[in-house]
Design a protein around this nucleic acid. Structure first.
Length: 599
RNA sequence: GGAGGAGUAGCGAAGUUGGUUAUCGCACCGGCCUGUCAAGCCGGGGAUCGCGGGUUCGAGUCCCGUCUCUUCCGCCA
């Protein structure tokens, strides 16, 4: 057995090894039997090496080589030799050499594979997840998981260099009313009581600031019991940071430096020394999103100045309400390519976000054509000049409540960015979204609610009078956006019990409930809590973007699928009656037992 | 919870207005082949066409129901 142990990996051999005897361990990636001569591609984590069984090999060796199938795990003993010039494979890192086999040992055989292990497997995702151990063998997954590990290392390196401490916080905590639904863990020792899994280490990191740790970070697992998407799932990893005695500017500087370090180290890309800052209002107003993709234009224009001069009564009605808005987007040169049918596809996209319709006009040599052009023909010159449109452009117009108009036109902007191929995939465009409103009005419940969470500080100028008009209060909170993804989010926190109480009052959060749920934090603030603030970045999303993927499942070794199931181990699963009893629980089945058992 | 799309061999796909024995590539099995690198050539096995019902002389194809997957909306401070 000992002489089967590898002396080199499949990724390290080159010409300098010619003539040396080596042992390789790895998997049979490809198997090309030419009768007289036989080639194997042997693969391990480090790369791929071609093994040759020559025509002059012993019969026994030839037989062994013939018996090998894809993904057999083998040991190959042989001699490295340089390939003749004409047989060098420039696509392969080890393409200048090959190993002439002298002995092949099958370490383990492999059944017929459920799918081929390729860099880009075409198998459907649930099958890949069921056989994740095979999927992870692919070169692509190997690279991405390594990228993720390198990323985590770069993060620790950065924070260590700046004097931050990585401090762990518990994962069995108290359920606190934050944004998402909690995962609950029943307590065996305390009947009827539950732990929750953290949605983030939020409260603990603030407590750590009260405790004087000054600069904290943690690569923390977080849990939210909500429906999954391409860029989010039940459990995810956050780069969590909190600092004492800081302002928002300190957080910006630190975060920009962290991303610069990461991008330089992993991608050899120099990021700008500071990132553009866009207010929430401007982001919504010009891009229709609080996470705009700045890799392409298609900014919105205000169409309101033209509404009064035209004849389109729908827009006049919209503007008669003070919260109404009419936004315009110029799509350069798209008039010819966008038929009624294609425009109605855009309209469908907008309707998902609450728009009632989508108006449009095409710019011609002498005015407008199609759509609602007859209502604005008389002032076409003024509009074209005002919006900076050109002949052949398509003008899309959206009239609705301001937020609906922005959101729905923003959805169209995103779709056009993809459809018209406006996005330069090699670019990384960061921006800060700042000046978020602290409170949102909930029309259904007729009350104010926190736009982010209840622990964010209002900006100074609003503090004194914030009860008068909560809707106008801007918070000291910020998001970091990269290429249309929300990458990080944070705020300067409230650290005075009185101010915290006023915020609870505005959002109608009962004092008793606050005491019960996070009284410990409010108590902590009574003992000389320092001003503090922080930010949390999504590590999975960052890894996904760096890997150029659309789904975080491509950078998580063992993810749940879209319906919150792990196809490999089939979790979640039923448990024994006994376990449920121990936890003082009873399962109330909403479906018939057969239905539950089969799925 | 809602809307769209999909389900055909281990995997990825084709299958026309309903018409013989359901096709192709990869994988698998057997054979040939001395330089391939996604090797090539010849042959073979493997499919209750998601499931249930209906229309029809005849259904992968049309109709109804149902299940699963998938993208999006809601949700995700």
């Amino acid at each position: 057995m000992t002489n089967n142990k590898r002396t080199v990996t499949c990724g390290q051999l080159d010409k300098s090894w010619a003539g040396k005897k080596v042992v390789l361990n790895g998997w049979v990636h490809r198997n090309r039997d030419h009768g007289g001569i036989h080639f194997l591609n042997l693969r391990d984590h480090y790369g791929m090496t071609q093994v040759v069984i020559d025509e002059d090999a012993r019969e026994q060796l030839k037989k062994e080589a013939e018996s090998l199938k894809i993904e057999f795990c083998v040991a190959v003993e042989g001699v490295v030799r340089q390939r003749p010039e004409s047989m060098i494979n420039k696509e392969m890192k080890t393409g200048s050499i090959e190993v002439k086999a002298e002995k092949i040992t099958i370490l383990n055989s492999c059944e017929t594979l459920p799918f081929m292990i390729d860099e880009e497997s075409e198998a459907n995702e649930n099958l890949r997840l069921k056989y994740r151990y095979l999927d992870l063998r692919s070169l692509g997954m190997q690279k991405r998981i390594k990228l993720r590990a390198d990323l985590a290392f770069a993060v620790r390196e950065f924070f260590d260099g700046r004097g931050f401490l990585e401090i762990e916080t518990p994962t069995l905590i108290k359920s606190t009313p934050e944004g998402a639904r909690d995962f609950l863990v029943p307590s065996r020792l305390h009947e009827g009581k539950f732990f929750a899994l953290p949605q983030s280490p939020q409260l603990y990191k603030q407590i750590l600031m009260v405790s004087g740790f000054d600069k904290y970070f943690q690569i923390a697992r977080c849990y939210r019991d909500e429906d999954a998407r391409g860029d989010r799932q039940l459990e995810f990893t956050q780069i969590d940071v909190e600092m004492s005695f800081v302002t928002a500017d300190d957080i910006y500087e630190m975060t920009e430096a962290m991303y610069s370090h990461i991008f330089k180290k992993l991608m050899n890309i120099d990021l700008p020394s500071s990132f553009e800052r866009i207010t929430y209002h401007d982001a919504m107003n010009t891009y229709g999103s609080d996470k705009p993709d700045l890799r392409f234009g298609l900014q919105f224009h205000d169409f309101a100045p033209f509404v009064g001069k035209g004849e389109f009564s729908v827009f006049k009605d919209v503007l008669s309400d003070s919260s109404g808005a009419v936004k315009a987007m110029i799509v350069p040169g798209a008039a010819a390519a966008y038929s009624r049918k294609k425009i109605s596809e855009l309209e469908e996209e907008a309707k998902k976000y609450g728009a009632k319709g989508l108006a449009w006009m095409k710019v011609t040599a002498d005015g407008f054509d199609g759509g609602i052009s007859k209502f604005y023909q008389s002032i076409s010159t003024e509009i074209i000049r005002g919006l900076g449109a050109k002949e052949g452009d398509l003008i899309l117009l959206m009239g609705a409540q301001w937020k609906t108009a922005c959101n729905s036109l923003g959805a169209i902007r995103s779709k056009l960015g993809r459809d018209l191929d406006l996005i330069d995939e090699s670019k990384f465009k960061f921006c800060w979204i700042v000046d978020f409103p602290l409170f949102d009005y909930n029309d259904d419940e007729q009350c104010w609610e926190p736009a982010h969470h209840m622990f964010s500080m209002p900006q100074d100028r609003f503090i004194e009078t914030m009860e008068k008009n909560p809707g106008e209060v801007l918070g000291d909170l910020y998001d970091l956006v990269l290429n249309g993804y929300e990458l990080a989010s944070g705020s300067i926190r409230v650290h005075h019990p009185e101010l915290q109480q006023r915020i609870f009052n505005i959002v109608g959060f009962p004092k008793e409930l606050a005491e019960e749920r996070f009284g410990f934090l409010l108590d902590a603030f009574k003992y000389g809590a320092p001003p503090h603030g922080g930010i949390a970045s999504g590590l999975d999303r960052l890894a996904m973007i760096l890997a150029g993927k659309q789904s975080i499942r491509e950078v998580i070794p063992f993810p749940k699928n879209n319906v919150g199931v792990s196809p490999m181990d089939e979790s979640p699963a039923f448990v024994d009656e006994e376990q449920i009893k121990d936890l003082h629980l009873q399962v109330i089945k909403s479906k018939s037992p057969e239905t539950q058992e089969t799925k």
